[in-house]
Write a protein that binds this DNA or RNA. Structure first.
Lengths: 237, 237
DNA sequence: AGGGAAGTTTGTTCAAGCGCAAAGTCCGGA
DNA sequence: TCCGGACTTTGCGCTTGAACAAACTTCCCT
């Protein structure tokens, strides 16, 4: 299952990513040589909540979805991780088990290393620790924002915010629209916002009619980000 | 404003707290000598969201409330921090500004150090970093749980969960009840659960009638934790 | 090209819980 | 001891959005 490095990976893959950007070529070489590479399909599970944290990962291509399941069997999408970030770094928070399940939201490529190397990375590569904790900080900030959202905002605002967040993380200009670059269903959006796919569908239809977004099956583009921001702020109830 | 150490603090104050528990007496002495002490009233603001993170803190006594304010001016209680934890450690996540406001939920005592000492603490005191990141990990776990809660549960379940969480963090046996050891209003509970004080009041009245809880003004005791757990799981809708 | 699965739309019904309003109760301070 | 403010309770109407139901569309596989 672990398709290890075909031969040798191009160092430039890592050289621009924050946790590695301050390292010398030689060090990046070491890091790559220790890594396993896997190409994964949309929907592949990378690891499950509660499993022993045996490896940590870097998302080289694609988008990852961090998911939790309630006792009632409902899914909640806690977070999306964009290309170029570390994930599964339970070790950084002193855990020995993964706190959530990770699933590929699109096809993509991941690198991974055994957790036993974590301490080594932290100790040997200057800037690695700092950058890692910065990422973590950003993630905590995002979680906080979501708590506030869920606690105070209406469904319409929450869905608008979810779209904006995805747009900022993975959006790409396409003509005059900004396209969310990985497959996303109404169901997904509902699991990000704590509502039902029905409600999301209704909202999206209305927004499409109003010229704010454009959507095909499993695909969403934002036409009018500013309009969405206004909705997110409850401007036009 | 910074009531510095009256004379010298008793080292045993810190010796049992996780981040310091593995240190030698001499090291704890150093740490205490570098600290400022303040005794704070209920309601005192320790620091505000967005302010430069000039110091980091240890809550020696009392309970702290981490609060965020929405653009609309509504408060959301993101977290309660129990006695004996570090807080305001923006530095640990590579931030140079506090991500939320901290307010004393009861009167209490805090120690603090200038942020410039953070790197020194991490580097000089073995176990300090690990323990800190463990705490952070637990906090992330709690935030995650709240996101799932807010996204999937009904108001009744959320309020029950909030009470249970407070009970576990700060509860003390009093007769056959478990009392939440700091002042808490219906308003507070509503700000923890994303609802209104009215709804919380109704729920509490019902629970009191059912013998699950007992409450005086600004005080809550849990009589039947197991019953609350059932409510939290939606057993009795 | 046909069939089926996955995803989406839309309608209808209905209850949870919010907004608003008002009164009651407890507490500390003058 | 009385007053005023802070906290709590309760009632009522109404909106939001969930639940249920069913049809439709798109995509993929054979």
């Amino acid at each position: 299952m672990n398709t290890t490095a075909p031969h040798r990976l191009d160092p430039s893959l890592l050289a621009n990513l924050p946790p590695f950007s301050q390292l010398e070529r030689r060090q990046i070489r070491e890091i790559l040589d220790a890594a396993s590479v896997r190409r994964l399909e949309e929907g592949s599970v990378v690891f499950e909540e509660g499993a022993p944290a045996e490896r940590f990962y870097m998302l080289l291509d694609g988008v990852l979805r961090v998911v939790r399941i309630t006792e009632g069997g409902e899914q909640v999408i806690a977070l999306h991780i964009p290309t170029g970030q570390l994930f599964g770094i339970a070790r950084a928070l002193g855990r020995d088990t993964y706190p959530a399940t990770s699933v590929m939201a699109s096809e993509g490529i991941i690198l991974s290393w055994p957790t036993s190397l974590w301490e080594h990375f932290i100790a040997s590569y200057p800037g690695f620790a700092t950058e890692t904790y910065k990422t973590l900080g950003a993630r905590v900030g995002e979680m906080n924002a979501r708590i506030v959202e869920l606690a105070t905002q209406h469904v319409e605002q929450r869905v608008a915010n979810a779209l904006l967040r995805l747009m900022n993380q993975t959006g790409k200009r396409t003509g005059n629209a900004i396209e969310i670059t990985f497959p996303i269903t109404r169901q997904d959006l509902s699991e990000m916002t704590g509502t039902t796919l029905h409600t999301v569908s209704r909202l999206m239809s209305a927004w499409e009619k109003a010229g704010l977004v454009e959507s095909r099956r499993k695909h969403v583009s934002v036409l009018d980000p500013h309009g969405l921001v206004e909705l997110a702020q409850g401007q036009h109830p």
